[in-house]
């Protein structure tokens, strides 16, 4: 198989200015409304990120954080972020808008998996820590926020805080093994062995 553009990349840390996206249970229908999923590529998804939430009734940009913190690289979110639909369109839209990493209280699992597939570190901290970081970004829109995936820390201003990174995600990003297709493709013979033992799969390959 040919090499791919993403898989060899080691992601040890990401940084840039931040954008707080407050609220629990922010669902993927808000992040990327379904009406914008009728495209066969992800190319234009950045244009649709939080499309409805970012606009007022006249269709003009409102004061949504994504409008106020343009150019940000680190999103700071609260609990159960990305719940609902499995659409990868949501983290694709965030990535294509410019988000390289996410700090939050917790994530819906499919969303977190999708972030891993895309090489977006999604790290967690407790409510107080996350809220303080959100407030700091509000006060320091040009300030740098760095997620160190390897060291499991987030640094902003004079603060360095410990964060949690799911072990599998940390391994995958830091070791550059998040291209799961290549990884699993190399185990084809083992897959055949597993399949042979399954009573419901016809052994035709």
């Amino acid at each position: 198989m040919s090499s791919n553009d993403a898989g060899d990349q080691h992601i040890t840390d990401v940084s840039g200015t931040g954008v707080p996206i407050p609220g629990d249970d922010v669902d993927t229908d808000q992040i990327l409304p379904a009406k914008f999923m009728k495209e066969v590529t992800f190319d234009n998804m950045a244009d649709y990120l939080f499309y409805d939430a970012r606009r007022d009734d006249d269709g003009e940009f409102n004061d949504h954080p994504l409008n106020r913190f343009e150019g940000a690289s680190i999103a700071v979110v609260n609990s159960n972020f990305g719940c609902g639909s499995s659409r990868e369109h949501a983290p694709q839209a965030m990535m294509r808008w410019g988000i390289d990493g996410v700090v939050g209280e917790s994530y819906a699992e499919i969303f977190r998996d999708n972030c891993k597939s895309l090489g977006i570190p999604a790290v967690t901290a407790d409510h107080e820590t996350v809220t303080e970081l959100q407030e700091w970004i509000e006060a320091n829109p040009d300030g740098d926020v760095e997620i160190d995936v390897e060291a499991k820390t987030v640094t902003y201003g004079d603060e360095t805080i410990d964060v949690n990174v799911d072990d599998a995600m940390r391994e995958a990003l830091v070791e550059g093994i998040w291209d799961t297709t290549a990884l699993m493709y190399s185990n084809r013979s083992k897959v055949d062995a597993t399949v042979d033992e399954l009573p419901y799969v016809e052994g035709d390959d």
Binding site: S86, E88, H89, T181, M184, N187, V191
Partner: peptide, 15 residues
């Protein structure tokens, strides 16, 4: 439920 990159995984590797 899986995302699109995981669909790629299943299509390519069955896993």
């Amino acid at each position: 439920g899986i995302g699109t990159s995981q669909i790629r995984d299943v299509l390519a590797t069955g896993c």
